[in-house]
Amino acid sequence: MRKLSRLSAGAWVMNIVVWVGGAFMLLPFIWMVSSSFKTTEEIFQPATFLPKSLDGGNYARLFSSWPFSRWIINSLIVALFTTLLALMITSLAGYAFAKFRFKGRGKLFAVLLSSTMIPFPILVVPLFVITSRLGMTNSLISLMLPFIAPPIGIFLMNQYASYVPNALLDSAKIDGAGDLRIFFQIALPIMVPALASLGIITFINSWNNFLWPLIAIRQELSMTLPIGMANMLTGVSAGSAPPYGPAMAASTLVCIPTVAIFLAVQKYYIQGLTAGAVKQ
């Protein structure tokens, strides 16, 4: 408060605008959480900001009327394994590109980089055909595979791997360590910030992924959270009133992990996002 008084008029305006804008940004979150505690009748009445009571009925209904816990487990499995595999694959490749000299290196790297231009939506038809021919429809594996070697991740890993001092690698080499051991014991620990950045981004993207699971998954029990949630309002029984309350409870539960992770480790997430931007 004492400090506020020293702000210039311009700074005052800025603070007000930013905070009012921030209130608007928060509004959907507040609405989501508040609606998740409202009964159906309450929701259908003219909007009120706060629920009449903190009744957890919608949350209970979520778990009893839909296989919500299955969706959570599915989403967790997909996000975790996608992340782990992506970290393995991209760090190996990124490291190889940074620290080995081999034939075709430049071209192979260029091909990878150019693939960031491929928009994912154009792949969904062939991916659907391929995964179904492989007998992987409705399987969680089909949800992971297309995302376990993100080119942008290889690029990020490559950048970080190049910071690993060659002297370290050479001395390990002289001590008789194999390439794989050097990678795991020496390079990987140095690349931890990049792994953290990519890991968080991959996890969150996978958790929120909608288009591909919508196509690949067709059974309620194999659904991930976003598909299951979307299905709550649009699909299943045409003819019953949309269960807005449980949908908002689901939305709240879906947002909590990603927002919490983000708030806890903002730094890594932002570093991962901007690594490509500032350097390029």
Partner: peptide, 19 residues
């Protein structure tokens, strides 16, 4: 019983996939 949004697209997919 399995609940799914569209049984017919699932049926076609399953048949193509040999599931």
């Amino acid at each position: 019983a399995q609940i799914m949004p569209n049984t017919i697209t699932s049926l076609i997919t399953a048949s193509v996939a040999g599931e």
